[in-house]
């Protein structure tokens, strides 16, 4: 039945997968903003772990660096802009939940069938770069320099826009 070898990588994969899924599900089902943001953090860290397993260590730690900061900021907004006096529970809609369950099961069936049918024949072995930080840097400044610069401009525009909006409010 279990035609997989039980290696450290396999166990790590399942730990991270459970972390991502639990985080995502809890994010949707919890009601307090701070709790939701924290489960989001668990999902992000699980993703970073997946990147490590795929030998993309640069991406993994950038993921933690960026999203840990983002989660902190989101948490502060959550604390400052929502009220904590027990959000009233929505009245349950039975048919709504039933439909959602049917839809989810159908999607699962479809995906499961597709995955079982798919033919994962051995493609050429993937050789990760020796130093993937270096590889990413070289690609960014050669092949992808235009998209990279465009994204930088976009970020700068967003940044200046945020300052202008905040200034208008302060006056």
């Amino acid at each position: 039945m279990w035609n997989v070898e039980l290696t450290g990588e396999f166990i790590a994969f399942f730990v991270f997968a459970v972390m991502i899924i639990t985080g995502a599900v809890m994010m949707l089902s919890l009601t307090q903003v701070v709790h939701m943001v924290l489960s989001l953090l668990a999902a992000f860290i699980g993703m970073a772990g997946m990147f490590v397993l795929l030998q993309a260590e640069f991406l993994a730690f950038v993921q933690v660096l960026i999203y840990a900061g983002a989660v902190t900021i989101l948490m502060i907004f959550g604390i400052m802009m929502t009220n904590h006096q027990g959000e009233g529970a929505e009245f349950p809609r039975a048919w709504h939940e039933g439909l959602a369950a049917v839809g989810a099961l159908a999607l699962f069936g479809l995906l499961f069938y597709a995955i079982r049918q798919a033919d994962f024949s051995q493609v050429t072995a993937y050789a990760p770069a020796e130093d993937n930080t270096l590889a990413i840097g070289k690609l960014l400044f050669t092949g992808y320099v235009v998209p990279f610069e465009l994204v930088s401009v976009l970020l700068t525009v967003a940044f200046i826009g945020a300052i202008v909006l905040a200034k208008k409010e302060a006056d």
């Binding site: 953090l41 260590e57 640069f58 950038v62 933690v64 660096l65 989660v71 930080t133």
Partner: peptide, 25 residues
Amino acid sequence: DINVGLLYYVALSGITTIAIVLGGW
């Protein structure tokens, strides 16, 4: 001996900030 040792340091130390805000809240 990690290729991105410095990045690892900075990334992980950011998580402590979350814990401090969390403790305060």
